[in-house]
Write a protein that binds this DNA or RNA. Structure first.
Length: 263
DNA sequence: ATGACTCATCGCATGAGA
């Protein structure tokens, strides 16, 4: 028998690493994920709290940006070995939205897909162009003979089952047919949508906006996703959303979302 | 149809988020 280990991989849009550091640290301590993909750091590289994360037992790589965007990868007890920062296909794209590394034997892409609102318009065009670049890059990863995961805030509501009220979001970039079509094309490459695989028909959300007590009332969206290539999907054991984090005071509007896999 | 919240920024409002 080959040696096997159980790994917990998580994605968490923190909506400002500065405003969320204490919550991030307490979540890490309670849940002890092995690999964490973070989005929306909203901080310059020099403001990333590497020392505090190191004290908490996590090595990190990050790609910051002033005010907006920003992504990072954390490894429990290890520093991720970076393989890429930025999606290929557009050298003029200066937004910090993708970082990739080997962590605990898994190739992990951490992504923050553009929101795309308002649509139609240039921001929606940028979203779709970014998605096509992601599709191309994902196509080069899915068939590797190694475990690969794409983790992040995809800003796509895959189906009407992934939103509390499809009608309320009808004009939003997250739910447009064009966005969903590229999502489906990603899955057709062979990726497994881990949360949907585990929850099947059960309702599960990862984001609840700050308005009208949507978190408390569980009126949310499923937009944070974990895509597993066939090698990794073969070891999928469990998946979940740490909604308790979203219900805390001063929470991000997203909750940490995770899978447990045997590799 | 709008705005409700929240974060970051040389802020006393604005842009962006989703």
């Amino acid at each position: 028998m080959p040696r096997r280990k159980l790994l917990k991989l998580a994605t968490f849009n923190v909506n400002g690493i500065g405003a969320r550091l204490s919550q991030l640290l307490s979540w890490l301590e309670v849940e002890q994920p092995d690999v964490v993909a973070l989005q929306e750091l909203k901080a310059l590289d020099q403001a990333f709290p590497a020392a505090q994360l190191e004290d908490a037992g996590y090595g990190a790589i990050w790609h910051g940006q002033r005010s907006w965007n920003g992504v990072a990868l954390l490894g429990r007890g290890v520093t991720p070995v970076e393989s890429r920062r930025g999606l290929p296909g557009d050298h003029s794209d200066a937004q910090s939205r993708y970082i990739e590394a080997a962590v605990h034997g898994v190739i992990v892409g951490c992504l923050y897909l553009p929101n795309g609102n308002p649509q139609p318009g240039p921001k929606f065009d940028y979203k779709l162009a970014w998605m096509r670049r992601l599709q191309r890059h994902a196509g080069s990863l899915v068939g590797l003979p190694a475990p690969v995961a794409l983790l992040g805030d995809f800003n796509v509501i895959p189906t009407d089952a992934d939103v509390y009220d499809p009608g309320a979001w009808r004009k939003d970039a997250l739910i447009q047919p064009e966005s969903r079509q590229v999502w489906r094309q990603l899955l057709q490459q062979g990726w497994t949508d881990a949360l949907r695989e585990v929850f099947e028909d059960e309702q599960v959300y990862t984001f609840w906006d700050y308005f009208r007590q949507h978190a408390e009332r569980d009126r949310g969206l499923r937009i944070d996703h974990l895509l597993l290539n066939p090698v990794l999907a073969a070891g999928l054991q469990e998946a979940g959303v740490d909604r308790w984090v979203r219900l805390q005071e001063k929470a991000s509007d997203h909750a940490p979302t995770w899978v447990r896999v045997r590799i």
